[in-house]
C-alpha cells in the first residue's frame, strides 16, 4: 500500500480455522500458540472455542480469531457455519499416522466448498518430534502442498517447533490478501453493514467482526 493510504489505528479481525482428522494435534497447536500450553492427554476437544491473538503488521494491529473444531470432526460433523467468514485455514495431519495425511484431500474439498478461493491455506505436518515413527516424509508433505497451492510447514506442538511461525505466516498472507482487496470492497462492506444488530454488549467486537467480510466481495 502507498503511504497516502496508510491509516493509523486501523484494525483487522481475521477468522482462521484449523481442520484435520481427530487427534492430529489441532487443539494443542492452538493452545501452544495462544497460551504456550500443551496437554498430553488427547481426549476429543472439550471446552475449546476460539482464541484471539494480536499481531502488529505494517504498524497496524491485526487480530486473529482462531477456531478449533470442538471435536465435531471426529465423526465428520463439522458445520458449514464453522467455515463461515474464514480467511485463513491450517490443514493439519500427523506425520506418524499415514491415514491423517491421506485425509488432507477431503479436508481441502470441504474447505473449498465452504470458503472463498482467496483463503490463505497452510498444510501442517504436526508431531515432527516423532521422527522415529515418521510415516509421512517431508518431501511428500511439500509435494502435496505445492500441487495444491498451499504453504507448508512441519511443526511440533509438543516441543514448540515452528508453531508460532506457522500461524504468523498464515496471518501475514491474509493481511496481504486483504490489503489488495480492501480498496475494492468499500461498497460491498457498507452494504453488509446496513441494519446490523448486536444481541450482547460487545459493540467493538461487532464493528471489528465486519472486517472478516472483506473477502466476500469476490463471491
Amino acid at each position: 500500500m502507498s503511504g497516502s493510504e496508510d491509516e493509523g489505528g486501523e484494525e483487522y479481525l481475521f477468522k482462521i480455522v484449523i481442520i484435520g482428522d481427530s487427534a492430529v494435534g489441532k487443539s494443542n497447536l492452538l493452545s501452544r500458540y495462544a497460551r504456550n500450553e500443551f496437554n498430553m492427554h488427547s481426549k476429543a476437544t472439550i471446552g475449546v472455542e476460539f482464541q484471539t491473538q494480536c499481531l502488529e503488521i505494517d504498524s497496524k494491529e491485526v487480530k486473529a480469531q482462531i477456531w478449533d473444531t470442538a471435536g465435531q470432526e471426529r465423526f465428520r460433523a463439522v458445520t458449514s457455519a464453522y467455515y463461515r467468514g474464514a480467511v485463513g485455514a491450517l490443514i493439519v495431519y500427523d506425520i506418524s499416522r499415514r491415514t491423517t495425511f491421506d485425509s488432507v484431500g477431503r479436508w481441502l474439498d470441504e474447505l473449498k466448498t465452504h470458503c472463498d478461493t482467496t483463503v490463505a491455506m497452510m498444510l501442517v505436518g504436526n508431531k515432527c518430534d516423532l521422527e522415529n515413527i515418521r510415516a509421512v516424509s517431508i518431501d511428500e508433505g511439500k509435494s502435496l502442498a505445492e500441487a495444491e497451492g498451499l504453504f507448508f510447514m512441519e511443526t511440533s506442538a509438543l516441543d514448540s517447533t515452528n508453531v508460532k511461525m506457522a500461524f504468523e505466516m498464515v496471518i501475514r498472507e491474509i493481511y496481504n490478501n486483504v490489503s489488495r482487496k480492501v480498496l475494492n470492497s468499500e461498497t460491498y462492506k457498507a452494504e453488509l453493514s446496513v441494519n446490523r444488530v448486536s444481541l450482547v454488549n460487545n459493540g467493538a467486537a461487532t464493528s471489528k467482526q465486519n472486517q472478516t467480510y472483506f473477502s466476500c466481495c469476490s463471491r
Binding site: 472439550i46 471446552g47 470442538a70 471435536g71 465423526f75 465428520r76 460433523a77 458449514s80 457455519a81 464453522y82
Partner: peptide
C-alpha cells in the same frame, strides 16, 4: 449449527 457447536464445546458428540 450454532447450538450444535455449543453442545460440542461442552462435550456433545456429533454424527451426521
Amino acid at each position: 449449527q450454532a447450538f450444535a457447536r455449543l453442545s460440542a464445546v461442552y462435550g456433545g458428540t456429533y454424527m451426521l
